[in-house]
Design a binder for these strands. Sequence first.
DNA 1: CTGAAAGCGCTTACAG
DNA 2: CTGAAAGCGCTTACAG
Lengths: 333, 333
Amino acid sequence: MKKVTITDIAKLTGYSIKTVSRVINNEPNVREETRRKILRVIEEHNYSVNLLAKALRNSETRTVILFIDRRRGKYWNEWHDLMLKSFMVKLKERGYKVIISPSSGEEMINNDADGFHLLKSGLADGAIMFDVISNDCRVNYLRANNIPFVIIGKDKDFNDTAFVDLDNYLVGYIGAEYLIKKGYKNIVLFLGPKVFNVNRERAKGFEDACKKHNTAHSIYYGLSTIKEVYKMTHILLERAVVDSFFISGDDKALGAYRAIREKALKIPENVAVLGIDNLPSSEYMYPPLTSIDQNVEKFSEKAVNLLIEMMHSKKKSPQRIILTPKIVERQSV
Amino acid sequence: MKKVTITDIAKLTGYSIKTVSRVINNEPNVREETRRKILRVIEEHNYSVNLLAKALRNSETRTVILFIDRRRGKYWNEWHDLMLKSFMVKLKERGYKVIISPSSGEEMINNDADGFHLLKSGLADGAIMFDVISNDCRVNYLRANNIPFVIIGKDKDFNDTAFVDLDNYLVGYIGAEYLIKKGYKNIVLFLGPKVFNVNRERAKGFEDACKKHNTAHSIYYGLSTIKEVYKMTHILLERAVVDSFFISGDDKALGAYRAIREKALKIPENVAVLGIDNLPSSEYMYPPLTSIDQNVEKFSEKAVNLLIEMMHSKKKSPQRIILTPKIVERQSV
DNA sequence: CTGAAAGCGCTTACAG
DNA sequence: CTGAAAGCGCTTACAG
């Protein structure tokens, strides 16, 4: 069954390709009767525009690529899931298709399936980038080629790129202060891989607050899974000095909860746990997790608006939006 | 900055478009020296193939669409996230790009951003469909137009479609039997929306097992969020006859856990909770959740293999793969 | 080993 | 209100 094309419709109706094209695109200057006739034939033959051909002609695809770091999904956590869904709903509302590409900023894969390659070859109009690292090869390339993109996170390398970010320094800072004010004296911060800017910023804010208040503290990088957090919590509780865990990613807090219970300690009486992300499920943990919220909906809304603006205007006016984190108090601290 | 095309490279090197094309596609019959020369110019000018044009010519896009039900993500749960990631990794390994489209089977949206429309217009070679309903409009269309697709779930409407599914009848059946054998006497099953085939099948298996063993039971549909499960658990515990909750979707079990605790009841001594999905976090719940596993990796692997086979052969040989669920015993029953 | 021509399905000026 | 021609960037026969 061959696909029916605009030429077929033209032949079938006796009109020219151009007239059919006018009807399809709802352009003026077509007699009402002609329009009706053509529409009927289109309907009958179940014709629909070949987006490929259209995009080739217009050099506009109405597609956006979302880059998320690969590592086989290891670093792709529940916050990413939440953001993803939010982006997809919002972009679709605005008439954009979404391609998701697991690519990292560390190396450029020369593979037709790599989202990076898609952008080079004109299969998308713009990009949203997660998990940016220093000297990110994707950023370098997109910037050099004038392809519109918005970074989720800060960009330290250039000052002419657009980004939306949570104030991650502040996340670390207010988290530490909150624990300190509640009377905890030995705080541990668990973070994901050190390559990601976000983690280094949280660490900085955390450290500054602890130093200011002269509080014992330590930082552990590279804890990406619930299991790793579980094991590390056990190890640290062995030493019996830590009295509070500050965990980047609520989804991993469950690992700490379990280790703490296994040591027969009580949350928050003996040990506090403070999360980051404020996931929907955190409220249902036992005890309900106190966490630092980052308003996913607002985050994605800002990024989508920014990107669409950039794709339309094509002029460079890099905006940088910083969102403020907020502690949501529950019962784990 | 205009994008450099194959014509530019041809002019720049003095060779014909065709020869350049040969080099790009690694075809034989090019003198080594010619190849080197052309490759150098390609490199210098940062040329890359326009996938749009290539796809138009080849009528192959190497793209697969993943359909997930919309409803603003309400029914899109953690199991979907897991499957999604698994699909993306596997499809990428095979050289396919992934477009994710939140579309439901209930209505056909006439919007360029709807994944459904993308398929009609040749922007993808095949599709994987989640959350299929009876008389699903996407299935009807794809089938009528000979577009390769694999359903995640059973198809009751046609017998010439391909699908991979968990044996959901068995899920309901073994879940109920497991609870009954552990001595529970009044079982409640929580399910998502009734429109989805998967939920109706689980209900059927559950009911059959309960009837066989003459056990008191009831089924509640439309529980899609952790909050809804939380509230409903409270309501049912009020009546104080229910002694076990069988919950479709581990991520929602946390809601039941909380309600049970708030009634000062113990899991599993007073009330049992049995989940479905066996999510990574279930092991870390308190108490660790007993759940029915469905092997996400195997699931997606089968579906990807099936789809790729169909896209290549183009011949109709609908395969139907049924996976067997397995109870993973932990401490909540 | 290399190339000129035709065409994938559409739209953009331009002409009538 | 309608249409013929050119072209988007590529590949597929075909010819030499």
